[in-house]
Design a protein around this nucleic acid. Structure first.
Lengths: 331, 331
DNA sequence: TTGAAAGCGCTACCAA
DNA sequence: TTGGTAGCGCTTTCAA
């Protein structure tokens, strides 16, 4: 920066101001800009952050980057935050809470202005870490009773109940559930819970549950899970799947077996991924606006930053995201 | 850090050493650690980077995070770099070279130790920026004749030729190509080029090309593209698609029309995404080890860092990634 | 093994 | 509108 200042014949301070886009005469601004271009000067963000006491980072933790709903959420966040000069520090927890803890600790070192987490379950240490840091937190993709600071999401339990009701309304009685095994995917477990609650409320049996595979969203397990279900309860009329991915795998398995979907068995998914619309038969699913979750989260973050700067209007702690059942061909 | 030092009854320097895991007596180490835990101290990465002159960032730019092959590459990178204490600064170019340029400039501000880019095409400004920065660069997913520094990838032209040859070996003569429109996806265009070269080499017509949709990897365009192809050239025997995503869309369209794949028409994809194996009929494709590209890139990065630290053994500039045709049901 | 001093490159603050 | 000074929180370097 000294080099730029010398070349432009001004002080370092003036260079700093020009780069920040603050008050400077046209002539000065131009001279400085020319010097910057000539030298190919790129300011050091670490020095800036250290000096000003504020970074331009916003940390985002998602369970998986390869799941299109989470990458859509990241896109929504980017769309809102990038124009404000904020940068995303993206981390992938792999669905592990202790990995989340490690990443939170690591990202906190960079003094992010805000942290967006996926889900409402965190280790005690993570909560303590966040608390002590004072960094505002947004929890996404769920609707906890008591958010750490803010939450943008919806109740996976309620959404699952809705799709079960849809299947029941279609006249199905023997309805199964296909999901992932293991405690990793809390939102998947919530959907299972929704299935069980709604089946009970409807007075239907709720034991036709197959849980397979450790990774929560893979389509590869849909097929084997469907096979297991048909083996055990051949008279099943409809199946709700934890996600469109597993629904897809399940439907492909039906086709392999010469079963017609939905004539022989109805299949519903969750998430309204691209595949649900493209697949044949197209998959009946619950549509969740993943990109919108990112946008709303971005807005919550901006509000939190404005509040930290002394603006008064507080952002609501909970932002509820709408979901709708999308009837298609498969159920 | 002063607080920690005071509480532990040592100097700041000793705290710094303990955190870096350098020489310190057991007793001191323990006392310092206790103080850190008690205060919930989290070191400031910006200050550390500024002081030491080296960050722990590695920048990675991919065209899209929602495409599973690129997120797999990111996973491979993470697996190799995270254990070394390096952090990924992940950016999404959306397939735009000028966005890549903006992101490179932005990331350079954080003094990354290395930058991994996707593809071999970059704006002049990007190249200048990288050159001046002196940061080592790895180009992924392609095999340029002259990498900026290092490249980890393969020739998309050759890979495409191989799958065309496979289709021709199956006895097909009237072979079409389904891909994305627009200049955005260079690797997609290379595959088209490979199709055209191989068809020419085989003495076959190479005009059955349908290009649809601006985003390169979406499955939604596969259906309409297949429809357009069948409309224009109804006697087409086989189709090569720019990716498994479009192949999937194309196959679903065939099923909608009551066409049997591969009996009525053969379809091949590219990439060996999860969907290619799960889909019915399973998709014949070119398998590329996306995760492996990430790992190899990570190793190239570590080698570059070691070299910068004065280690002598140079990493090869080009690392070729193998691909293989995977015969399945669809062709 | 430990400590003291200097300084990394920038911005906040106040003065001109 | 511009410049000088101080200092952000750490690590490097050298001395004890």
């Amino acid at each position: 920066m000294s080099d730029v200042a010398r070349l432009a014949g001004v002080s370092k301070m003036t260079v700093s101001r020009v780069m920040a886009g603050r008050s400077a005469s046209e002539a000065t601004r131009e001279r400085v800009q020319r010097a910057i271009d000539e030298l190919g000067y790129v300011a050091d963000a670490a020095a800036g952050a250290l000096s000003s006491g504020r970074s331009s980072f916003v940390a985002v933790l998602v369970p998986s980057l390869s799941s299109s709903n989470f990458s859509d959420t990241v896109s929504g966040l980017t769309a809102v935050l990038e124009p404000q000069g904020l940068e995303l520090l993206i981390g992938d927890t792999d669905y592990f809470l202790d990995r989340e803890e490690r990443l939170v600790r690591q990202m906190l070192r960079h003094q992010p202005r805000c942290i967006a987490l996926t889900g409402a379950q965190h280790t005690e240490a993570t909560r303590t870490l966040l608390q002590r840091s004072g960094v505002p937190v947004v929890e996404m993709w769920d609707m906890p009773a008591e958010p750490i600071d803010m939450a943008v999401g919806f109740s996976n339990v309620s959404a699952a109940r809705e799709i079960v009701r849809y299947l029941a309304d279609k006249g199905h009685r023997r309805i199964g559930f296909l999901g992932g095994a293991g405690e990793l995917d809390r939102r998947g477990l919530d959907r299972l819970k929704g299935y069980q609650m709604e089946m009970k409320a409807l007075g239907l049996e709720r034991h036709r549950v197959v849980q397979l595979g450790d990774s929560p969203v893979t389509m590869s397990h849909g097929g084997p899970a469907m096979a297991a279900l048909l083996e055990r309860w051949p008279d099943t009329q409809a199946v709700m799947c934890v996600s469109d991915m597993s629904a897809f795998g399940a439907i492909m398995e039906c086709q392999r077996r010469g079963l017609s979907v939905p004539r022989d068995i109805a299949v519903a998914g969750f998430g309204n991924f691209e595949i649900a619309a493209c697949c044949y038969p197209a998959i009946t699913t619950v549509s969740v606006d993943a990109y919108g979750i990112g946008q709303r989260t971005g807005e919550a973050i901006l509000a939190a930053l404005a509040a930290a700067d002394g603006a008064s209007p507080q952002h609501p702690a909970k932002t509820r995201i709408h979901y709708t059942v999308v009837p298609r061909e498969s159920a």
